[in-house]
């Protein structure tokens, strides 16, 4: 930040605060359902940050995949479990000190990465459309990886169906 406080800075701090608060809430909430809903704040905040960086495609995908997919999946899993709102059942505290140690180790890794990373310096974000280029990349040089991922996902879905399926005649 060189001197002038711009509106983009304000929005950035607001979104970062929302993201961090959501993360803290998700980690510290005793009620696991509320923890999942705190994640909504985090996901939305990250999507907002992507939008602020003019990565419009990434922002939309973040919202679609994490809010529309991952979050809903978690909510399903949580809500279909019995006695989920009892904290000692759903959210037992194994060892406080172990948790703090794991958190500290994670923070150390992230911090060193953050400090060492060569950040690109750009004065103002360019609001250029990204989708066309992404599409060309995906159907050009990235086509084979895309196909491989698609095939893998297809295999995963078929595998899940096979695992979930009961034996013949039990329907």
């Amino acid at each position: 930040m060189n001197g002038d406080f711009t509106l983009a800075d304000g929005v950035f701090w607001l979104l970062s605060a929302a993201t961090a608060l959501g993360g803290l809430g998700a980690a510290l909430s005793r009620n696991i359902v509320r923890a999942v809903f705190f994640l909504l704040l985090t996901f939305a905040g990250v999507a907002g940050l992507y939008g602020l960086l003019s990565a419009d495609f990434l922002a939309a995908v973040q919202l679609m995949v994490y809010v529309g997919g991952v979050l809903v999946l978690m909510l399903f899993a949580v809500m279909l479990t019995s006695q989920i709102d009892q904290a000692h059942q759903s959210n037992p505290v194994g060892s406080r000190w172990l948790g703090i140690a794991c958190g500290a180790a994670m923070l150390a890794v992230l911090w060193t990465t953050l400090v060492r990373a060569p950040f690109l310096e750009e004065s103002a974000p360019a609001y250029a459309p990204t989708t066309a280029e992404l599409g060309h990349t995906l159907t050009g040089i990235g086509f084979l990886p895309l196909l491989a991922v698609g095939l893998l996902l297809c295999a995963v879905i078929v595998g899940a169906v096979v695992v979930a399926r009961r034996g013949p005649g039990t329907e």
């Binding site: 909504l40 939309a60 995908v61 919202l63 679609m64 909510l75 459309p129 989708t131």
Partner: peptide, 21 residues
């Protein structure tokens, strides 16, 4: 928006969360 259709699909997925809430 340049990502119009994607934005539509993404933003309407918030409805599910509200309904579950």
């Amino acid at each position: 928006l340049d990502v119009g259709v994607l934005y539509l699909i993404a933003v309407t997925s918030l409805v599910v969360v509200g309904i579950l809430m």
